[in-house]
Structure formats: structure tokens, C-alpha cells
Nucleic acid binder design. Sequence first.
DNA 1: CGCGCGCTTGACTAACTTCAAAGATGGTGG
DNA 2: CCACCATCTTTGAAGTTAGTCAAGCGCGCG
Lengths: 226, 226
Amino acid sequence: MLATVLHSPATSFPMPPTMIDGGELAALDRIGAVVALRRDQALFREGDAARHCFKVLTGALRGCRLLADGRRHIGEFLLPGDFIGLELDDAYRFTAEAVSDATLMRYSRPAVDRLAQQRPRLARCLLDRICGDLFAAQSQMLLLGRKNAVERLASFLLAMADRSGTGDRLSLPMTRNDIADHLGLTTETVSRIFGQLKSQGVIRMQASSEVLLKNRGGLETLADAA
Amino acid sequence: MLATVLHSPATSFPMPPTMIDGGELAALDRIGAVVALRRDQALFREGDAARHCFKVLTGALRGCRLLADGRRHIGEFLLPGDFIGLELDDAYRFTAEAVSDATLMRYSRPAVDRLAQQRPRLARCLLDRICGDLFAAQSQMLLLGRKNAVERLASFLLAMADRSGTGDRLSLPMTRNDIADHLGLTTETVSRIFGQLKSQGVIRMQASSEVLLKNRGGLETLADAA
DNA sequence: CGCGCGCTTGACTAACTTCAAAGATGGTGG
DNA sequence: CCACCATCTTTGAAGTTAGTCAAGCGCGCG
């Protein structure tokens, strides 16, 4: 899919996605259908034939992979505006499940291919999304390979705050266990580090899913600013 | 850039095992120049302006990122046939250094863009490489987030064997420390697990860089077959 | 031959996990 | 509207894996 995706404008440096998203991605919506999921429902499972890709409209999903004995890793959380499955092979390579009730736009892959062929700027836009996913994965590898528990949670909170675009106020629709499976920790450790950050005064929480960043600079230091 | 630019050859070097591109990539070589690196020399550093992308011809490189206090993570080892920097932003997002003496083909990005526009099948081929990198990164996240030391090393050895395409015989040009930084472990732990695998009889070693897989099925079980 | 670097091995430590249980939270039905 | 129950979160204590520190080994190269 996206066979023409490398057809880029003469200036090859990609622009920030937000600058060109609006018009180009709107064209996609005309070939999409809306899908609704309830909490914990699977959108697709690893290994399923990959006939569609998706864009999150509301809610949140998790992309997970399992080991044979049931250990789970969540590669990414998918929030409104995120695409799922652009990089498709012929099969989905992870399982996507709803973290909360969610709605998505569903696109057939051949239709996206055709549209991308007609619109090089759209193709470029989608390629940028894939490259963004790759960059995020590289950063997550650094986190998982070399950061301690405090650094992991601090990095996670900062990344979530940046993505939700609601300043220093941020809601976490996923459970502590989901967060643990994303950060390579356990529920208990995640909970303890939340407590630690609270008592240090860098965050405050109304509920277990509502976080306020009281000291972003402090968090950035804890995250190691890498 | 520290690398030496050599003459541009008419044809390609010893090709990698994966010739599945059906000659599309050969077209690239006509717009490339050969670059040679010596062991530990940097091809580029994180943050450098990204004017080129590369293909490894001989030798091996590591793609690394650092934390502020010097902790290092190697996101990937780059072997003959691998591309580096296709997913370019305007700056390199990791540092690439030679693990051993190496030669690469260097391509200017605008030239690659132009060629990809003329050749959709080449564009597709390059996109597939990027998607392959993304899949590898997702697998590595699972490894770093949820596998123990034995599973990590077993997975690594199997992946390296698959990539080098030399059956069960495999050479590791990188140091134990490089392997540790790739697997989120320490030199000592990597060394201990090598010893363990040797005494279990699943591998044999002539030298510390020459590994023979004596029992691939056993290794796959140890790696968790995920 | 000897030096330097990388690899190995051992003893001890620290960070995180595991196991266990108590404390919130929120959704449901009476 | 409240009570109940399942689920999620928090907290505590003990256990385990891998890390740290330290020393010795071995190979390759000048």
C-alpha cells in the first residue's frame, strides 16, 4: 500500500504534520466509515488479514503484543488523530484493543492506495505518520533499554501531555496495568512511582486518571531530557 | 563528516541475501558514491543535518542514542544490504558509528526522491524497508519490555542468524558491550548468558565473535517464540 | 614479548518484582 | 438513592534478577 508515498515535493524535508494535515487528511474521510468500539473490545488481532487501516476519532486504544506465557507489551497508545495500520503488511502485526469506548474512521486499504496515488501530498503526509511512529518506537526502545522506573514514568507523562495538547492537565484513560505494560514495569511499581511524584510535588492528581503537571521542568529533569 | 568519499563504482558490491527487490535497488547505485569508515568512526551524529541516506555494503554499524549521563542504547545494528536514514527528518535522529571497518553507498536525498518519483516500484521497495524497520523496532520493544536476559540473548542470536543468511554459523562483529547496549543489559550479564548457552550446548564458539547454533529449536524455545 | 583492550568470573548490592492484603472507585440493580 | 460487588489502585514485606564493583584471563597487535 502507499506505493507512491515517496513521491514528495521538490523540497524533500517534511513539514510538521499539523501544518498540512487538515486539507489532505480530510480527503480521506470521504472514503471512510465510522466504527465504534466499547472498552476492551478488539479492533483487530495480531495475524488477522489486514484489509483496513484506521484513524482514531474519540477514545483511546492500545497496540499490544504477547509472549507465549501471556506476558504483554503495549507498543503504543493510540489517541484521537492517530492512524493505525498504515504500515500494513498483509497481516496486522499487533493486536489493537479499546482502552476506553472509542470511535474510529475505517478505510479500505486499496482505496487509500488509490487516493494516495492521486494526491502526492496526502501520500507524503501518511509517510510522515509512519516515520513518526518509527521515531516514537526508537525513543521507547531507549526508555525500555536504559531508563529506570522514575525516568520511564516521567517520560511517559510528558509524552502524553504533549500528545493530548491540553497543557499541563492530562487524563489517562488506561489502567495502571496498561501503563506498566507500556513501560516494561509492574502495576505496583507504576503505582509507587506515581506516589513518589505526588509527594515530590511534581504532579497532583484529582483522580487516578487525572494528572496535573505541577512542575514540568522537574519532570523533564527526571525523564533525563534525552 | 568524517567519512572518506571514494570513487563512484559502476556496479554493485557483494549483494545481501535479500535480492527480493528484483533489481529496483540497483538503479539507486548509479546515483550513489562509496564511503569508507574505520572501526568506531561516526557516519553521522544525532542532530546533524540529514542530507544523505546510505546503504551498507560491507562491515557493520550501530545506530545509537544517549542519555544525558552517558547511558547508551543501540537501536539497531546495520548489516550489508541495510539502509540507513530513509525515514529522514531534516536531522538525523540517532548516531551511526562503524562497529567494524565498513563501506557504504551514500545517496543524496533529493536524488533519491527524484528517482523514487520516476520509479514507483523503487519507492515501494524503500517504503517496505521503513516498514520493516518499524516492525523490528516493535519486536525490540517487546524484547526490552518483557523478556529476561536469556530470552533477549537467544532472540538476538536468532535474529542475527536470520539476517546474516549463513545458516547456523554466525559472526558477531560487535563487542559484548555493544550487544549489552542493544539488549538493555550489561557486558557482564551478556557474557554470563553466553557461558550459560554454551554449557547448555545450544551454541558453540570458536572465538568470542564466532557463534555456531547447535540447537536452533532449543534457542527458539528460550527466545519464547513470540 | 608485553601491553591494551575486551572478555570472563566471582561476591555483593540494588532495583524492581512477587506475593499478599487492604483501600478506593465506579457501575448496577434493587 | 443506596448498597453491593467487581475491578482497579495502593501499600507493605520478602524474594529474585540483573547490576555493580573488582580482579584475573586471553587474545591480538605493535
